[in-house]
Nucleic acid binder design. Structure first.
Lengths: 143, 143
DNA sequence: CTTGCTCCTATAGCCACTGGAGGATGTACG
DNA sequence: CGTACATCCTCCAGTGGCTATAGGAGCAAG
């Protein structure tokens, strides 16, 4: 008879950790659910779906603001999906940039590691390259 | 006559922002420099080199702890560079993992965007895929 | 009724900075 | 010598997206 899923089950079902669920409620990403008399949160299946959506979006690297927009779009199925498309495209471009940046990084790290003579620091290419930026091509970000 | 480079010049010379230099001093990554009578920090060329080293290391994605170790190694040129090598190799592996993860992400985002019918949200593949994780392969991280 | 699990709030910490307020110092010029 | 202005100082708060801890309360099974 009891409808109302406890936060632990919701966490299991969605793959989002309990403190994270509460955090999402706090920042307004997830609506505050009704409570039991004792003050415990009671969710339903829609909430699990919403959290799964959020988790998957986070895994794809969308930030909270973008997820807010995506969730809002999901709730209005008769609207144009141009916004969702734009957000996904922006993220795709971002990912492509990051891959390019990391690939350049990888090349530099490889040169460092392969050039290491495994001797003393004095002749170590790792330290050398770190010390002198001119010994490598310029690049932007890491991560 | 005045030796002692002001923080602004050091910032220019190293490419590290002024507040970041002070932050590095605070966390012990950069030694606290002598001060003028008025209390201003006075640096020398070694400091600029050290900060360039730090900046370059950060660009390569090493964290502060790793940079501490790398800096310590740089100061002792007669030691084995095995530690530096290990740190660089670890970072290289990390970067490779991240590239793989991002490439998987890219594929999923591409499928999303390319599948988008540019119609209404109802039939939007972007939203659909986000909502239903089973419609895509499993993966781990983002960024 | 008691054990033990789940849940609650509130607060602080993580990383590596970044920015602002509000004031002191150093310098170039008239 | 006075003043305008650039540069610097400290302290503190904020960023994003959580994660962890302390100290307690609720709830179901045995």
């Amino acid at each position: 008879m009891s409808h109302g899923i406890a936060i632990g089950k919701v966490s299991e079902g969605s793959g989002v950790k309990i403190p994270t669920i509460r955090y999402y409620e706090q920042i307004g990403l997830l609506p505050a659910p009704p409570r039991t008399e004792g003050g415990r949160r009671t969710y339903d299946h829609k909430d699990i779906e919403r959290l799964s959506f959020i988790r998957h979006s986070r895994e794809l690297g969308f930030d909270i603001d973008q997820i807010q927009t995506l969730l809002a779009l999901q709730d209005r199925p008769d609207q144009s999906c141009a916004d969702a498309d734009a957000i996904a495209k922006a993220r795709l471009a971002e990912v492509a940039r990051k891959i390019a940046s990391l690939t350049a990084l990888q090349a530099e790290l490889k040169r460092m590691v392969e050039g290491c003579s495994h001797g003393r620091v004095e002749t170590c290419r790792v330290i050398e390259i770190l010390a002198d930026h001119d010994k490598c091509k310029h690049h932007q970000q890491a991560n």
